[in-house]
């Protein structure tokens, strides 16, 4: 194996693990934020219409 093969192998491993880790976090916690976004925008709409 030459130098660049090792570099790309390590980089690929790091990229894959990092991708999997952050993706798992984002998928799990992002769902609650998506619901909250809809709720907040809906809340503003209700305020504008004068509803409680």
């Amino acid at each position: 194996m030459d130098f660049w093969e090792i570099v790309w192998m390590v980089a690929f491993g790091y990229g894959t693990l990092g991708f999997a880790f952050i993706a798992t976090n984002v998928i799990v916690k992002g769902f609650a934020e998506a619901r909250s976004l809809l709720h907040e925008l809906g809340g503003e709409e209700e305020k504008q219409e004068g509803r409680p």
């Binding site: 952050i22 976090n25 984002v26 998928i27 916690k29 992002g30 934020e33 998506a34 909250s36 976004l37 809809l38 907040e40 925008l41 809906g42 503003e44 709409e45 504008q48």
Partner: peptide, 25 residues
């Protein structure tokens, strides 16, 4: 989402309510 849009900031920048995880996604 259509029902939630009331102004241009909602339409173009989602009312500036984007948080960390949704922002990354």
């Amino acid at each position: 989402a259509r029902k939630r849009i009331t102004n241009i900031a909602d339409y173009l920048v989602a009312g500036r309510h984007i948080r960390y995880n949704l922002g990354v996604a």
